[in-house]
């Protein structure tokens, strides 16, 4: 004989459902309230230490306090592409500071900010630049000095996956641009060089920090292709007696840009504070902090002051390769040059 449900269950269930909804609403309200005087900076992988210090300086800056009150900035770090994706899906970023302009372009295409965002701040919206360099084991036992050495027999190269990592795209393009500029160099020789190069890569990590960890902590490979800031951090701070930096003869000038996410600051009512934060990145104080973390400053005075920190490099930039739109399509789209060279050697 089946039990009969008394009618009370539906009322109770309704009550329970209502309570659960109220709970979720309360949680999200609490989240909103907490976000009142805070900004969220969604950033790429190797900026953890940089923005930790800049956020503290911004919080304590007297001019900012007088104008806007004390502002707490939180930073979320991850692979540049993945971070752009999470902003696209609704991560409440007030500003983004990503590894390459392409990732911010995607947000602009989806209406998160104006399409001409890169013109809104000085230096192509890039408060710090970097170069792509090599990190090798102490004393350079494999005598690696320039790009051709990476493809010598027996050399293992560590670089992350260009499909997921912004840093890896810079690495890839540095190699590509160098190969193009060799005597007799053209697209065919550049393709060949990259194909050989990637056959020397034992494992493709998803992000720049993962690749650094593979090389530094797990001891994988003979040479790490990396952001200069990441390489200098590893060489100077993590293991002064374990690593050396090698600057290739020619490399790419990496420009990781910053931008205000118009749509989110409109919703959060944080436009003024977020703009102040982005301007602060160009201030002497922030530029100095950047230099101390081995990010190349753009302020002329700080450039001179911190010149001793950085090796001289000769560089080309992304515009020399045709800009991000065409580079992205040609190299990193499905079936593009990277897919062709990587799949055919697997």
């Amino acid at each position: 004989m089946p039990l009969h449900l008394p009618p009370t269950i539906s009322r109770r269930a309704l009550l329970g459902g209502g309570l659960a909804c109220a709970g979720i609403a309360a949680l999200s309200r609490q989240h909103q309230a907490r976000a009142a005087k805070t900004l969220l900076n969604v950033s790429y992988d190797p900026t953890r230490e940089l923005y930790h210090d800049i956020n503290t300086a911004f919080h304590e800056d007297r001019d900012i306090r007088r104008n806007d009150g004390a502002i707490v900035v939180r930073t979320s770090n991850g692979g540049s592409g993945a971070q752009a994706r999470s902003v696209l899906e609704g991560s409440p970023a007030d500003v983004v500071t990503l590894g390459l302009a392409r990732d911010i372009d995607i947000l602009a295409q989806n209406g998160f900010l104006a399409r001409d965002w890169q013109k809104r701040l000085p230096h192509n919206s890039t408060p710090f630049t970097s170069a792509i360099v090599f990190l090798v084991r102490k004393g350079n036992p494999k005598a690696i000095t320039d790009w051709p050495d990476l493809v010598r027999p027996g050399i293992q190269v560590v670089t992350p996956n260009p499909k997921t990592s912004g840093g890896a795209r810079w690495n890839y393009l540095a190699a590509w641009g160098w190969a193009l500029r060799q005597p007799g160099g053209d697209e065919a020789t550049a393709r060949n060089y990259l194909k050989t190069l990637f056959s020397h890569v034992p494992v493709l990590d998803a992000g720049a920090r993962g690749a650094t960890n593979s090389f530094v902590q797990r001891g994988l490979g003979d040479v790490l292709i990396a952001w200069e800031n990441e390489a200098l951090l590893a060489a100077k701070d993590l293991g002064p007696d374990k690593f050396d930096i090698v600057v290739p003869e020619l490399t790419i000038l990496a420009e990781p840009p910053v931008a205000l996410i118009d749509r989110n600051v409109h919703n959060h009512g944080t436009g003024t504070e977020a703009r102040a934060y982005l301007d602060f990145l160009y201030s002497r104080e922030a530029q100095k902090i950047g230099a101390s973390h081995y990010f190349r400053p753009v302020d002329p005075i700080i450039i001179t002051e911190s010149a001793w920190r950085f090796p001289t490099v000769s560089t080309f930039d992304i515009a020399d390769l045709g800009g991000w739109v065409s580079v992205q399509k040609k190299h990193f789209s499905t079936g593009g040059v990277f897919d062709q060279i990587y799949s055919s050697d697997a």
Binding site: I24, H31, E89
Partner: peptide
């Protein structure tokens, strides 16, 4: 934001994704 109910939730200022809920 790109999801089925994202636009409606955004209009009501209710954060579900990338928030505790």
């Amino acid at each position: 934001t790109q999801g089925w109910w994202g636009t409606a939730l955004e209009r009501m200022h209710i954060a579900v994704a990338f928030a505790p809920p």
